[in-house]
C-alpha cells in the first residue's frame, strides 16, 4: 500500500499575471469513518481521516478546507488560484490521528 499522507499536487509552475489557474491534489489516505466494521473480526474500524487542508502563498493562508470522513478515500481536491506575484505555494494537511504533512511548489508569475 502506498504511504499514508503522500500527495500529488498539480498546478502550473508559470502563470501569466491576472490568470486564474487550478490547483488539483490527491492525498493517499484511507478516510475511515469509524462506522465500518472489520469483516473478519467484527470489530469497528477506528475513524481515521484528514481534518483540514490549508493553502498558503508566501506564508499567507488563502484557502482552508475543513473536511469530514464524508470525503472519499484518497481524497481529491481542486480550487482556483490567482497569484499576483511569484512565490511559494505551501499546502499543509493534518489527520485526526496526529499525522501532519506539507507540500511546497514554486510558482513564477510572468508579465
Amino acid at each position: 500500500m502506498a504511504k499514508i499522507g503522500r500527495a500529488i499536487v498539480k498546478v502550473p509552475k508559470k502563470v501569466k499575471k491576472g490568470q486564474v489557474v487550478t490547483i488539483r491534489m490527491v492525498i493517499i489516505h484511507p478516510m475511515e469513518t469509524g462506522l465500518r466494521k472489520d469483516k473478519k473480526t467484527g470489530k469497528p474500524i477506528p475513524a481515521h481521516y484528514i481534518t483540514h487542508v490549508d493553502f498558503y502563498f508566501n506564508d499567507k493562508l488563502f484557502t482552508k478546507i475543513n473536511t469530514s470522513a464524508g470525503v472519499s478515500k484518497n481524497p481529491y481536491f481542486a480550487i482556483k488560484f490567482k497569484p499576483t506575484e511569484s512565490g511559494t505555494l505551501k499546502i499543509f494537511y493534518e489527520d485526526n490521528k496526529g499525522g501532519k504533512w506539507e507540500k511546497t511548489v514554486q510558482i513564477t508569475v510572468e508579465g
Binding site: 484557502t63 464524508g70 472519499s72 490567482k82
Partner: peptide, 23 residues
C-alpha cells in the same frame, strides 16, 4: 454525518470553485 466539507475562500482564489469526491 451530513457535513462533508467547508472551504474558507479569500480574494487570492480568483473565483468561487471547489471540486472533490464524496461518499
Amino acid at each position: 454525518n451530513p457535513f462533508i466539507a467547508s472551504i474558507d475562500f479569500s480574494p487570492l482564489n480568483g473565483e468561487v470553485y471547489f471540486a472533490t469526491r464524496i461518499k
